[in-house]
Design a protein around this nucleic acid. Structure first.
Lengths: 210, 210
DNA sequence: GTCTATATCCCGATAGAC
DNA sequence: GTCTATCGGGATATAGAC
């Protein structure tokens, strides 16, 4: 058979193998400690081999980010489609958002790694778009003006993201239980935001400030 | 002579100078590109000099983080004390949280740098505590059960953090205006969460708070 | 106790041979 | 496409000057 040798990726799929091993390594030591050199070592190739497939370390991380968004989106879709009511669907987005952060920490970390200049990798933005659209379409289904929808979408996204960060930061403890606690909190925060959403769009300048 | 040379930091305050220059460098190139070597070069000392004051790069970054929390807390307190009503005070915490992220990006970035293992630097947690307490005391002033307060505190913190990340990520645009937009959104989201807070504490499904 | 000088090792990146 | 060789830079440890 054409089963490739797992120990030595000298068979032409180094690119995919690099992305795969990068995810593993990031899981083990975090993005910051990820190095092309170690990835190469694990794959049994020399340190310069990756440069045939990626411009450099950052480009590989960008590819990892794109992959992460794809997996992220798949998770969100799977979860959202279990519900029909718009509010529940939106809460499901928030829930799966946090779950993804908890169950794929390396990938989630890679998504927001300050070390990758996203503006130089437009494919990252393209990979993110379906996710944003999922948010938006759920929010739109709730009705209300365009401005109100936008405000709610931003608030929910921020809430989901915030819970995800708190989770990854350990504020909810460790393990699978912590993930569910955080995910459930995010879902409920979403429902609370929907409930109080009129307050998101009021005043236009009159909520106090400088 | 006991007169220290100001230009070379050979005067015994290298520790403070390192923290200061670290903040500058992180502002210029981001945490990832910060190096002890360059900090040393800028201060006119050799690369090994910092090791008299810090165990290594990570320890210096930890010190920067502590400093960041101190400044962060000072900002929050200043802003919160301009209000009296509990809801407004809580919204002010969220607002100043986001403002800090926008106006001190380097420090904010350092606060959540995945490269520093916070569990190995307990002083970071200690520096963070006053900030958490500020959140908590504002929430408690709103009344409600202990569990409900906890739930609201977490939700507001997550919302504030989420808006801050979206801001730093450029989702609100650039410049001072973007900062205010994000800060105001966070404040309003806080008010919306207060409004819908009953939904945060329902079902008893998996929400275990401590 | 603080800093210099030095040396080792790892990593990112490039050029050229196979 | 991959390897060899190599350069430059950064992290870190140690020995010694003041």
């Amino acid at each position: 058979m054409s089963r490739p040798s797992k120990s030595r990726y000298h068979h032409g799929d180094l690119r995919a193998a690099l992305i795969e091993i990068a995810v593993e390594l990031i899981d083990e030591r975090g993005v910051r400690h990820f190095s092309l050199a170690e990835a190469s070592r694990r794959l049994g190739v020399t340190v310069s081999a990756p440069y045939s497939h990626f411009a450099g370390r950052e480009a590989l991380l960008a590819a990892v980010t794109v992959r992460a968004y794809e997996l992220f989106y798949a998770d969100v879709v799977r979860e959202v489609d279990r519900f029909r009511k718009p509010a529940d669907r939106l809460a499901a987005v928030a829930r799966s958002y946090v779950r993804f952060a908890g169950t794929h920490r390396a990938l989630f970390e890679a998504l927001f790694d300050p070390g990758v200049d996203k503006s130089r990798y437009p494919e990252i933005d393209a990979a993110k778009r379906p996710l944003d659209d999922a948010f938006t379409s759920c929010v739109d289904a709730l009705g209300g003006s365009e401005a109100a929808s936008k405000n709610l979408a931003v608030a929910v996204e921020a809430a989901a993201h915030g819970h995800a960060i708190l989770l990854v930061d350990g504020d909810f403890g460790d393990g699978a239980e912590a993930v569910e606690v955080a995910a459930e909190r995010a879902a409920r925060a979403t429902l609370a935001l929907i409930e109080g959403r009129d307050l998101l769009t009021r005043g236009r300048g009159r909520t106090r400030s400088t």
